[in-house]
């Protein structure tokens, strides 16, 4: 028989998981890029990788404290955004898409290559960079919480830090999008020539949006690796597409959408894969092996993205009215 309590418990754990927080943060950055400014960034995984490695390398190789390492990660992602933006933001939107997906892969392969193994750990990645971050943990050792949400002090610290960043990023995004700055950004999404004709420096605004969303991406990368090791294969293009799935699920031009989207995405994915794996074990799906069951969740992600785009392109939190006018 399937252990439903354990299955539901495992799914519920995803609500607070730092992975969910990381995806929410990355999706929030993508909402600024894609949802509000109309920039097709297909390299959010690259921003996350730079944040993670920026943090890891400056801690391990240079012995920086956690806050300085965090600033290094953010700084590197700003430089990355500038390198991507300077040649492409004057061109049509699709050029940015091509350049970002390629640049993200270049970053990942750069971290994987053996040449810099002493800094990057090559394909094995990096670990053991948590020391300084662990030291500032104000929570005394022990296990806290109830039911499925029982963690030790470090796990709670990572969760509080991760979700704290999500809340700060969401507040900043919410404030910005209600401001005249957000109005210019949304105007650029609709028609950048019209905004240019009104005397706004469109290129500069697009650059600001690219940098801001990229910084959110790099912070997401750090939150992503804090509970585990940095492994380069985690930052493949599929990561970017998962984040797009979350963004479309929640609503591209919303603040709550990426956050709730990330939670729903991970809870549903965890439930589905857990259910299929157990169903195969107890023989409910005799035509399927355990290995096949593991792959089924990715098929599901694909189907969900398709269904969303067809039947609810505005996502969970998007404004239904906007849809009446989709070009």
């Amino acid at each position: 028989m399937i252990d439903w309590i354990q299955l539901l418990g495992n799914s519920a754990q995803q609500i607070l998981s730092p992975v969910t927080a990381a995806y929410a943060l990355a999706a929030l950055g993508l909402a600024i890029h894609f949802g509000y400014t109309g920039l097709l960034n297909f390299g959010q995984a690259g921003f996350m990788a730079l944040g993670a490695y920026g943090y890891g390398i400056s801690t391990l190789t240079f012995g920086f404290p956690w806050w300085a390492a965090l600033l290094v990660g953010v700084g590197v992602s700003i430089i990355f955004a500038l390198i991507l933006g300077v040649p492409t933001l004057r061109l049509r939107a699709d050029y940015l898409a091509i350049v970002t997906i390629a640049a993200a892969e270049i970053a990942r392969l750069f971290f994987t290559t053996n040449t810099f193994v002493q800094y990057t750990g090559s394909a094995n990645g990096l670990q053991g960079y948590k020391g300084s971050f662990e030291e500032v943990n104000p929570i005394p050792p022990g296990r806290y919480g109830f039911g499925p949400f029982t963690y030790n002090e470090y796990d709670w610290w990572v969760r509080i830090f991760g979700w704290g960043l999500v809340i700060i990023a969401a507040l900043i995004t919410w404030r910005l999008m209600k401001s005249p700055w957000g109005r210019v950004i949304k105007g650029i999404r609709e028609d950048e020539d019209a905004v240019r004709a009104l005397g706004k420096n469109v290129y500069f605004y697009k650059m600001q949006a690219l940098v801001l969303g990229g910084v959110f991406g790099s912070l997401a990368g750090m939150v992503f690796v804090l509970p585990r090791a940095i492994v380069p294969s985690n930052f493949q293009p599929t990561l970017t597409f998962f984040i797009y799935a979350i963004l479309l699920l929640g609503g591209a031009a919303t603040v709550l959408g990426p956050i709730v989207g990330a939670i729903v995405f991970w809870v549903a994915l965890s439930f589905f894969s857990g259910f299929v794996a157990r169903a195969v074990e107890v023989g409910w799906l005799p035509f399927m092996s355990t290995v096949q069951a593991g792959q089924l969740q990715f098929i599901l992600v694909g189907i969900v993205i398709m269904l969303l785009v067809i039947f609810r392109p505005q996502g969970m939190f998007g404004n239904k009215k906007e849809l009446a006018f989709v070009k």
């Binding site: 401001s179 005249p180 957000g182 609709e190 009104l198 005397g199």
Partner: peptide, 26 residues
């Protein structure tokens, strides 16, 4: 600008808005 309200379209036209700077907008 289709998915901006008529009023937002208008406000976008005004020149020299300090709220259009990223740092002040927050």
């Amino acid at each position: 600008l289709g998915l901006l309200t008529v009023l937002d379209n208008m406000k976008l036209g005004a020149k020299g808005q300090s709220g259009e700077s990223l740092t002040k907008a927050i």
